[in-house]
Structure formats: structure tokens, C-alpha cells
């Protein structure tokens, strides 16, 4: 179970973007977080994935409070999240070919990289794309690689921050399908952030609007 308790976060202590928000993702649950652009939902997603230190509040992973943020978070806690961002161009190191990109979390943890072909197949990347660098593939293909990277360490929670906002309908369907297949098999929880009500309501067990979160 992933719990965010009274999280206040932002980029300037005097003007926090997120004020006193609490949110729970139960075991195996898919929670959609709906909100207009710029409201702070991405910040909240980054806090949930331990990538941004909140000004106040707690993140609790299976009853255990997060011990730190970014590099200060213990590796076991950080890697229990698979994060997919909105813009694949910015979330891929431009120098790494896709195979290296997908293998990066495995290498960082000293695990064997032979899982890469299988991961690539899961997200629907063909072998010839794996040798290309990010600027040589389309946004959709790159986002597939980013999803494969997020799944590489078999995380307990997936945080998808507007994962499909840059993609066409068929790629969106394919990626959501991959996420759901992984969740069925592993029982991972999902926090999906977006502003597409139709998509999130079809995809998630429960959809929370930004307004209800902040008023409650």
C-alpha cells in the first residue's frame, strides 16, 4: 500500500504547489489522478515516486515511511517505483541507444542485462530499433522504451505522469495494455496522472479529481 499523508510540496516554500494532499493507492489498485495543467499533479507524482522532497508530509510504503528523497532514499525504496514521464525526449539520455536505455536500471543495480530483449518484446519494440539512439526513433517508440526501462526492475508501483499525452490513440492503447498486463501478472499498484478523463476512467479502478483532493 502506498500512502501520501498531508503532503505539501512545491518549488518555493512560501508558495507550495501542493497543499496538504493525502492519497492512498491500495495493493494492486489503479488510481487515476485527474487535474488541469499546472495544478501540481506532476509534482505530487514526483513526491510519490520519492523524486521530489515535500516541504511537509509523509510518504509511506507498505507501512514503512520513506527514509529520504532522490539519492537519499534507500535504493530498495527508490527502485520499488517505475516512473514514466510525459515527454519521452526529455526522459531519455540522448547518447544511449534504446537497448542501453532499457538496460540502465539493471546495470545501475549490477543485475544481468539479458532481460532486455524480453522487455523490449513486452512493449512491442523490434530488435532493429534497439540499436538506435533516441533521435532516430519516434516519440511513440521512445516512450515504449521508457516504459520498458520503468518495468526493468519489476517495481511494486508504477507512476505514469501523463504517459500517453504525446502519443496517438493506437500507441496509447498499446502502452496501457502493457501496463495492465504487467499489473495482472505482478499485482503492482498504479498511480496514473493525466487530464484525459475518458482514458483514466476506462483505465483505472478509481479516479480522483484534483479538486476533491485539495478540498478534503
Amino acid at each position: 500500500m502506498l500512502e501520501l499523508r498531508d503532503v505539501t510540496a512545491g518549488y518555493d516554500r512560501r508558495a507550495p504547489v501542493v497543499r496538504g494532499v493525502s492519497l492512498t493507492v491500495r495493493v494492486g489498485e489503479a488510481v487515476g489522478l485527474l487535474g488541469p495543467s499546472g495544478c501540481g499533479k506532476s509534482t505530487l507524482a514526483r513526491v510519490a515516486a520519492l523524486l521530489h522532497r515535500p516541504d511537509a508530509g509523509q510518504v509511506v510504503l507498505d507501512g514503512e515511511p520513506a527514509a529520504g528523497w532522490r539519492h537519499r532514499a534507500p535504493r530498495a525504496q527508490r527502485t520499488s517505483f517505475g516512473v514514466v514521464f510525459q515527454q519521452p525526449r526529455l526522459s531519455a539520455d540522448p547518447r544511449l541507444p534504446l537497448a542501453r536505455l532499457i538496460a540502465e536500471p539493471l546495470r545501475a543495480n549490477g543485475r544481468p542485462v539479458d532481460a532486455v530483449p524480453e522487455l523490449a518484446e513486452t512493449v512491442g519494440l523490434t530488435a532493429d530499433l534497439l540499436g538506435r539512439r533516441p533521435h532516430e526513433v519516434s516519440d511513440g517508440q521512445l516512450q515504449r522504451a521508457c516504459l520498458a526501462r520503468a518495468l526493468a526492475l519489476r517495481p511494486r508501483w508504477l507512476v505514469c505522469d501523463e504517459m500517453t499525452a504525446m502519443l496517438d490513440a493506437s500507441t496509447t492503447a498499446a502502452l496501457v495494455g502493457v501496463v495492465e498486463a504487467y499489473r495482472r501478472e505482478s499485482g503492482a499498484g498504479l498511480l496514473a496522472v493525466g487530464h484525459d478523463r475518458v482514458l483514466l476512467e476506462r483505465w483505472c479502478d478509481r479516479t480522483v479529481g484534483w479538486a476533491e483532493l485539495t478540498s478534503a
Binding site: 515516486a49 523524486l51 517505483f81 515527454q87 540502465e104 543495480n109 526501462r149 526493468a152 526492475l153
Partner: peptide, 13 residues
């Protein structure tokens, strides 16, 4: 950049 976030989340030191 988000790719540094992704690396941190992937357990990179």
C-alpha cells in the same frame, strides 16, 4: 532533466 529522475528511480548512485 527527467532522464536524471529516471536514473535515480532506477537506483543509480
Amino acid at each position: 532533466r527527467p532522464y536524471v529522475d529516471a536514473a535515480i528511480s532506477g537506483g543509480a548512485s
